[in-house]
Structure formats: C-alpha cells, structure tokens
Design a protein around this nucleic acid. Structure first.
Lengths: 166, 166
DNA sequence: CAAATTTCAGATAAACTACTCTTAATACAA
DNA sequence: TTGTATTAAGAGTAGTTTATCTGAAATTTG
C-alpha cells in the first residue's frame, strides 16, 4: 500500500479529532476505541504527531491529545509527512536513489507528473474537509463500524463484505 | 513505497528485456548481473511473470526467459498486476475493505480520481516505450551503474550520491 | 550417454513492520 | 499525601518481506 499502517492510523485519528464539534483534549483510549485500533500502538503513532507539532498533548485525568492548529490549517500531507516521511511524494517509482532529470529512470517523466498531482491533492486536502465528510451519513473512518463479534469476523473471513465496490 | 521490491525487480527485468534489439531468450543470470539484483531472488520473481503468461522460459544451455508477447503489447500495469496483484489500483487510500460509493471513507472521492489516473498511466505505459527510454543516453534502469564496492558503499552512506535530485 | 547450463522448487536466514507489554512521568482529585 | 488517569518511552514478540542457499528437473552439447 502507499501508506504504512502506522500512517493510516495517524490519519484516521487526526480526522476523527477534526470531526468533533469542538477541538478539545480527547484521550487516546477513546480514539483507539472508536477506530478499533490497538491503544498502545496508536499511542506510539500519535507521539510522532505531537513531536512534529501537529498535536498537543496533556497528561493526567481529563488529558489527551488535541489538534495544535485549526483543522483547516493541517493538511493530509502534513500528517503523512510526520509519520511516513516526505519520501512518499519525492520517491522514484522504482525507488532508485538519485533519480532525477540528470540521471532519470525510464518512467521518470511520467511518474513525476503523477506524483506532483498526488502531492497537490494531499497538500490541499485539509483535516477540516475530511472531518466534515467523516460526519456525513454513510461515511466511515475505520475498519468496522463497531467492535467485531465472532460472527461478523467469520462472515468477513468468508469474503462476505458488507459494502459494494466502486 | 507504492510497489514492493519484488515488483520493482520484475519491472526492471521486463524493461531490460524490452530494451534489447531483438526479443530472444536471456538468462536470468545475465539480467541479474546487469541490474545488480540477487540472481536467486530474481529467479523467483520472474517465475511469477512466466506463470502469469507474460514471459516464456526455456531450460538448459542457451535457455532463459523472453517476453511472451511483443513489448508493445505488455503494459506496466500487466507486470505490476502479476507480482503485487491488482490491489494497487483498487485499494482505498486508508486500506479500508469495502470502501466504495455505498460505504466510503472521507477521502474516497478524491482518491478514486487519483487512483484511476494512476491506473490509466500504468495501463498505457508499454514495455516498448520504457525499453526505448532505457536505451537513451543518461537513462539508467537499476540502482548502481556497476557493482558496488566497499568504498562506493561507504561514500553513499555518507550522503555522497552521484546524481542530483529533481 | 555424460557433462554442462539453465530454470524450477523448497528450506533457511536476515531484516523490517506491526503489534504487545511494562515501566516511567505527569497531573488532577479526594 | 495518596490514589488514579493519562501520555511518554522503550523493550520485547510475531508475522511478513526480502534475500540466500541447496538440490532437482529439463535441455543442449560433445
């Protein structure tokens, strides 16, 4: 996949925070519960975002994490950058180091135009917009709508997905 | 990265074959040598391509692998499909299973247009074109121009890359 | 037929990613 | 001050990907 799982978790958490009516401290436990993500793992992921200055954190009762800026001032690219690094938007399609105009790979020209479009999309997509969409009917943020029970789990394992493809 | 390393190796090998003046059996050892890839690993990767019908193989002296069709009839997407699977061009940005019009993620609309562009690019980029480009001056296919010696390796580790960035 | 060359197939090892667990540090509340 | 809730930090575990190695099967050449 384009993004690492850590990165996806971070993005999902950020969108969840942006989807709340007000920007306030939310405990990581709550976020992990809503998104069905391992609490301990999410903790580590969100540390990246606080260290990058995208989130502010507060320890102790009623503490948690909150967006450091208004959701309209944080782009999807900001979040991706902080977790997976900016290589996603810079890398050669074949991962060749130093691939550039002076020493290109065969797909260089085609890929750079593609890649800059991708970068532009992620840079202009703000958490505000994504949060608004997340609040719309029939839009979901995480894997399952609720906690997975054994029956559901078995159903998905048998390929019985509850939604149609594109 | 978007593509797995196995997939990149397969693509590089396919482009190398397409860059040759005539389509003939080439030993995997030769390809691995030219591209600085582990011979045994490349062998396993190319087996995927032969099983997918993109290559034909021949055992014994003067044997090897060759393109099963004309290089203009094999797209980059064909090769990617055969190794990494077609999920690359179908997957949700966040990897949510069943993400579609009925049950979308917040980024669904934006991502699908992006993804279809990517798919279109890879489907229309043929090995013929990529092979031609590979034959042009200053275009390279693989990681290093020659085998890496310890001194070179050390130099790159110190950030001394022999090519300029975009 | 024997020897050399090559792909095919499977076992093993190393490296990386994803995840879990434990212990600290911090802040509030009774 | 003691207990509790919360993030921070880091060590440890499991699974996947990447890479290496060995032997077998196939095919040509002498």
């Amino acid at each position: 996949m384009l993004l690492s799982k850590s990165c996806v978790y971070g993005v999902q958490a950020a969108i969840y925070m942006a989807s709340l009516p007000r920007n306030e401290y939310v405990s990581i436990q709550e976020i992990a519960g809503k998104l069905n993500i391992s609490f301990h793992f999410l903790t580590k992921v969100l540390q990246n975002l606080t260290q990058a200055g995208l989130l502010v954190s507060y320890r102790g009762p009623n503490g948690g994490v909150a967006l450091a800026r208004h959701s309209s001032a944080i782009s999807l690219a900001d979040v991706i950058d902080s977790i997976d690094g900016s290589d996603v938007f810079k890398e050669c399609l074949f991962g060749l180091p130093g691939c550039g105009v002076a020493d290109p790979c065969p797909a260089h020209e085609h890929w750079t135009t593609m890649r800059s479009r991708l970068h532009h999309l992620c840079s202009t997509l703000t958490l505000e917009e994504l949060g608004k969409r997340a609040n719309q009917l029939n839009v979901r943020l995480a894997n399952a709508h609720g906690p997975m029970n054994p029956a559901k789990l078995l159903a998905t394992m048998n390929g019985n997905v509850d939604a149609t493809a594109v």
